[in-house]
Write a protein that binds this DNA or RNA. Structure first.
Length: 100
DNA sequence: CGTGTGACCTAAG
DNA sequence: ACTTAGGCCACAC
């Protein structure tokens, strides 16, 4: 948990506003490791910190990692298109470190 | 230092 | 839409 990597990932996930979602890949992008989506998943798996809204982190196709997250997201006003979140409307518009 | 594993992602068939 | 295969990253052994 003291690791910079874990710390950065947690920070990024906490930045996700309610009613918005982010994919693992997007989080990886935000922390500056565009190809570390998998490692982000590892951090989430090991994360038991309630201050980290892990339910707002979904797969690239919009499907939550766990079904229990679905109801939680719906409570925040997230609309679902079948099993997937409507990413068009709810994907977190994070501004990236570099680029542009 | 090599290997295996994982809440991943993308491309192909 | 579903299944494979390949690839990237961090971590435990």
């Amino acid at each position: 948990m003291t690791d910079a990597w874990t710390k950065d990932v947690h920070a990024a996930v906490r930045r996700i506003p309610p009613g918005r979602v982010a994919s693992y890949g997007l989080i990886a992008l935000v922390v500056g490791r565009p190809l570390a989506a998998r490692a982000v998943g590892n951090v989430m798996r090991a994360c038991r910190d309630t201050s980290v809204p892990c339910h707002r982190v979904v797969h690239a196709d919009g499907s939550p990692a766990f079904a229990r997250h679905r109801a939680r997201l719906r409570r925040e006003g997230v609309r679902f298109n079948g099993r997937r979140v409507d990413l068009r409307a709810h994907l977190w518009n994070a501004r990236l470190p570099r680029r542009v």
